[in-house]
Amino acid sequence: MKKGLIYFCLFISFASQAQEAKEISWLTFEELEVKLNEKPQKTFIYFFTDWCMYCKKMDWNAFKNEAVKNQLAEKYYAVKLNAETKEPILFDGQIFKNKNEGRIAYHELALLLGSRKNKAFSVPVILVLDENFKVEKRIFHYLTSKDLLALLTD
């Protein structure tokens, strides 16, 4: 009986560890710069706002997907930034700020990296950059977990 209980406890322990996916380690831009200087790697940047329902839906669904979390944890530096943050960001020797006033005021780093030609900035914005910090892909809309996984494994 004791042996059976021990095996059962070991099985439960291993099963729970096997089901745990890696968590996304969201970095700041400052942390990203340090990491890139230590070891160049692909970078995933996600701009969102607190009021964006599609951003919230991605947080609740796509970024909770085990396969997505594993891909981001294993193959990318992941950065998540509220596009309306008022905090100054030191990156690549420059200080970026939110210089805008008003109801919707986007941070200049979000505008620099996440804008598109002849269109207003809108969230969500996803950028995938190569090891040299060159943009490979820009996505300007909601992604399901399936679509996000396809983007990450391309």
Rank of each mutant, 00 (worst) to 15 (best):
I89R: 05
F47P: 03
N132Q: 13
L109N: 06
I12E: 15
F11M: 15
L81Q: 10
Y54P: 14
C52Q: 14
L36C: 01
W26N: 09
E101I: 07
D50A: 11
N100V: 01
E84Q: 09
L148D: 00
K22E: 01
D147E: 15
K119T: 14
V79E: 08
N118A: 10
S25Q: 15
F91N: 04
K86E: 08
Q17F: 11
W26H: 06
T144V: 07
A73I: 00
N37F: 01
T43S: 08
H107Y: 02
E66N: 09
L127Y: 04
I104W: 11
F29I: 08
A21E: 06
K75P: 01
I45W: 06
I139W: 03
Y106P: 02
A105L: 10
F121K: 05
F29C: 04
D130W: 04
L113A: 02
S16I: 14
P88G: 09
Q41P: 02
F96A: 11
D130L: 03
P88E: 06
G102N: 05
K137W: 11
V135Q: 10
N70S: 09
E101C: 05
C9A: 15
I12R: 14
A18T: 07
L10M: 11
Q17N: 12
T43Y: 01
F63L: 05
L90T: 08
L151Y: 14
K119W: 14
V128P: 07
K57A: 07
L127P: 02
K134F: 09
N118P: 09
L149N: 13
Y7D: 14
E23I: 05
K57M: 10
Y7V: 13
F29E: 06
A62S: 15
L143H: 08
S25T: 12
Y54N: 15
N70A: 08
K69Y: 05
L143G: 03
A67H: 00
S145K: 04
A78V: 05
V125R: 15
I6F: 15
A110D: 03
S115E: 08
E23D: 08
H141P: 02
V135D: 08
E131D: 11
S115Y: 05
L5C: 13
A150P: 09
D130E: 06
K86V: 01
M58I: 04
Y54C: 10
L127H: 02
D130V: 00
I126T: 10
K39V: 06
Y76D: 04
L36K: 07
I24D: 07
E38P: 06
I139G: 05
H107E: 02
C52Y: 13
I6D: 10
F44S: 06
T144A: 13
Q71V: 10
F47I: 01
K99Y: 01
F8T: 10
